[in-house]
Design a protein around this nucleic acid. Structure first.
Lengths: 210, 210
DNA sequence: GCGAAAATGGACCCGCAAGTCCAAAGTCCG
DNA sequence: CGGACTTTGGACTTGCGGGTCCATTTTCGC
């Protein structure tokens, strides 16, 4: 059932995806009209529905996948090499830099919560992204534990979960306030915390919550 | 220019607002049609435009304000009394409980990023909410510092910023994954970190980032 | 009770944007 | 070259949903 597109067709298809992605970045998911995409990519309705038979939903899904992949790619090679403190800081810098540049334009923003219902698959894409992202962070922490740079009693999964959440929230706040401060605070404080925990050791454990 | 509504009118207006809020929670901002709200609140087009002359935008704005206020109200009285570790944990529990109950339904979600463009004022409402929220957390930290429960060298503003971001991200991840784990991890680890920092002291300072 | 003003109901208008359809042009392979 | 299939253009249909309008009813102060 894999549709057979010619070389040219494939090119057109991907031109539409990236064009739509750009459009979404600039004006937001729900402000984008199919016609805008057509104009920007110099394509026609016929083409769009030729490559995306299910119309807008299918296109949006393709864009989402495209952008989700991009998020992680943009963090490489740092994200996959969190093997020393300088490496962590380099990653931190990359994140700040990337989101600072991106500013208020977040292509995935609309897909996160409710809006994701448009295309049920969008939720899955975001979840998958988060999952991969967190996994990379967890591995970084584990590696640092193996070298003794992070205390062995730190729960790598939980720490990674918290850091990921912090990053997401930092980006969210960047989107709504326009300031990078929150993202920066999260990254710096969390990394410092992991760092100092190496010496402090044993500070946490099953914490006594209600 | 304050429009004069009668008692009854006021009631109808607020019925519309809360009804719209419910509708949005259930189906997401961009899935909500005016007619849905009318049906749910047993009102008519005439009424809606009578109370919200600027139509949907104005209604959405009113809903946003309503929900934003609610977010903080739901955290009281804990949020304003972060004066002891048990109090902090009580607040933590309240947050978990609240968001667990709320689940995937976040009325403000759509207003955060791009979607906020619909109503320029929505951005302001969210920013205002975040600002108030962070202020409360900062005050909590400061108070704990005044009693020596948190190290004096902790930058209360930055710590609060990081915690707020973590919470936002935790909620965001709850929305997309359906799991509360991230929010929980953020709260537990951050509080633990603030807590243990009291004894460890001096671990951070201007951190040596790039 | 009476008149002014507010509240209500709902039919109607209207534009927009998604999606359909088909004919024309291009491509590819023997 | 010829025929099958893909690609392309764009006119047209369609439904949805926001917003308008006005006639009717209710409320409220006096």
């Amino acid at each position: 059932m894999t549709r057979a597109f010619t070389r040219k067709g494939e090119a057109t298809r991907s031109r539409i995806v990236t064009g739509a992605a750009d459009e979404i970045r600039e004006r937001g998911v729900d402000e984008v009209r199919l016609e805008d995409v057509l104009a920007r990519t110099r394509t026609s309705k016929g083409q769009l529905f030729h490559y995306f038979p299910d119309g807008k939903d299918e296109l949006l899904l393709a864009v989402a996948q495209h952008e989700a992949d991009q998020v992680l790619i943009d963090q490489e090679p740092m994200l996959s090499n969190l093997t020393s403190w300088p490496a962590w800081l380099a990653w931190r810098d990359r994140l700040i830099e990337r989101y600072l540049a991106q500013g208020v334009k977040c292509p995935l923003n609309g897909l996160l919560g409710q809006t994701g219902r448009r295309a049920p698959g969008a939720q899955a894409i975001v979840t998958g992204l988060m999952w991969r992202w967190q996994k990379a962070i967890t591995e970084g922490i584990r590696h640092m534990q193996s070298t003794g740079d992070i205390a062995a009693d730190v729960d790598a999964d939980r720490a990674a979960a918290a850091l990921l959440a912090g990053i997401q929230g930092g980006v969210l706040l960047l989107l709504s306030t326009g300031k990078i401060d929150h993202l920066q605070a999260v990254l710096d404080l969390t990394i410092d915390s992991l760092r100092s925990g190496a010496r402090v050791t044993g500070a946490q454990e099953g914490n006594g919550n209600g």
